[in-house]
Simulated assay, not measured.
Amino acid sequence: MTANFLIGLREGLEASLVVVLLMAYLIKTGRKALIPRLWAGVGLAVAISLGFGALLTFGPRGLTFEAQEAIGGGLSIVAVGLVTWMVFWMARTARTLGGELRSQVDKAADGAAWGLVIVAALAVGREGLETALFIWAAAQATGETTLPLFGALLGLLTAAGLGYLLHRGVLKVNLGKFFTWTGVGLIIIAGGVLAYGIHDLQEAGILPGLHNLAFDVSAAVPPSSWYGTLLKGTLNFSPATTWLEAAAWLLYVIPVLFLYIRTNKAGPPKAKTAATTPAVTAHP
Results as ranks from 00 to 15, higher is better:
residue 33 A to E: 15
residue 216 D to G: 13
residue 227 Y to M: 08
residue 88 F to S: 06
residue 199 H to S: 11
residue 206 I to C: 01
residue 81 G to H: 07
residue 206 I to V: 13
residue 151 G to A: 07
residue 38 L to P: 07
residue 196 Y to P: 00
residue 262 R to M: 15
residue 151 G to E: 00
residue 80 V to A: 02
residue 23 M to N: 10
residue 37 R to G: 08
residue 184 V to E: 11
residue 63 L to N: 10
residue 261 I to Q: 06
residue 99 G to Y: 05
residue 146 T to W: 15
residue 191 G to L: 02
residue 98 G to I: 03
residue 41 G to E: 08
residue 129 L to K: 08
residue 130 E to G: 12
residue 5 F to L: 09
residue 155 G to S: 04
residue 22 L to H: 12
residue 283 H to P: 08
residue 7 I to D: 01
residue 41 G to M: 07
residue 76 S to D: 08
residue 212 N to C: 05
residue 96 T to C: 03
residue 164 Y to N: 02
residue 87 V to N: 09
residue 122 L to R: 11
residue 153 L to R: 07
residue 104 Q to R: 13
residue 17 L to Y: 10
residue 99 G to N: 12
residue 41 G to T: 12
residue 88 F to T: 07
residue 283 H to L: 14
residue 191 G to D: 05
residue 156 L to K: 05
residue 263 T to Y: 06
residue 231 L to D: 02
residue 138 A to M: 12
residue 174 N to C: 01
residue 219 A to F: 13
residue 14 E to C: 09
residue 248 A to D: 03
residue 199 H to Q: 10
residue 255 P to Y: 10
residue 219 A to S: 12
residue 99 G to F: 11
residue 144 E to G: 11
residue 196 Y to I: 02
residue 165 L to G: 04
residue 30 G to I: 15
residue 221 V to E: 10
residue 165 L to D: 02
residue 170 V to Y: 11
residue 29 T to H: 14
residue 239 P to C: 13
residue 62 G to I: 08
residue 85 W to T: 00
residue 177 K to E: 14
residue 158 T to M: 04
residue 180 T to C: 14
residue 156 L to H: 03
residue 88 F to M: 10
residue 229 T to L: 04
residue 169 G to E: 13
residue 112 A to D: 15
residue 180 T to R: 15
residue 137 A to N: 04
residue 97 L to I: 12
residue 233 G to R: 00
residue 46 V to I: 15
residue 131 T to A: 13
residue 118 I to F: 15
residue 249 W to R: 09
residue 53 G to T: 00
residue 91 A to M: 03
residue 108 A to I: 01
residue 231 L to H: 04
residue 209 G to M: 03
residue 169 G to A: 15
residue 149 L to K: 10
residue 78 V to K: 03
residue 213 L to N: 11
residue 46 V to P: 10
residue 147 L to H: 04
residue 260 Y to D: 14
residue 102 R to K: 14
residue 137 A to G: 03
residue 4 N to E: 00
residue 88 F to R: 08
residue 226 W to G: 05
residue 281 T to A: 14
residue 142 T to D: 07
residue 205 G to E: 14
residue 281 T to S: 12
residue 60 P to G: 00
residue 136 W to R: 01
residue 50 L to F: 12
residue 33 A to F: 11
residue 81 G to D: 00
residue 159 A to R: 07
residue 184 V to K: 01
residue 83 V to K: 09
residue 103 S to G: 12
residue 174 N to K: 09
residue 161 G to Y: 05
residue 110 D to C: 01
residue 94 A to Q: 11
residue 62 G to S: 00
residue 69 E to R: 05
residue 131 T to D: 13
residue 95 R to S: 15
residue 238 S to T: 14
residue 246 A to S: 14
residue 132 A to N: 05
residue 186 L to K: 01
residue 135 I to G: 02
residue 76 S to Q: 03
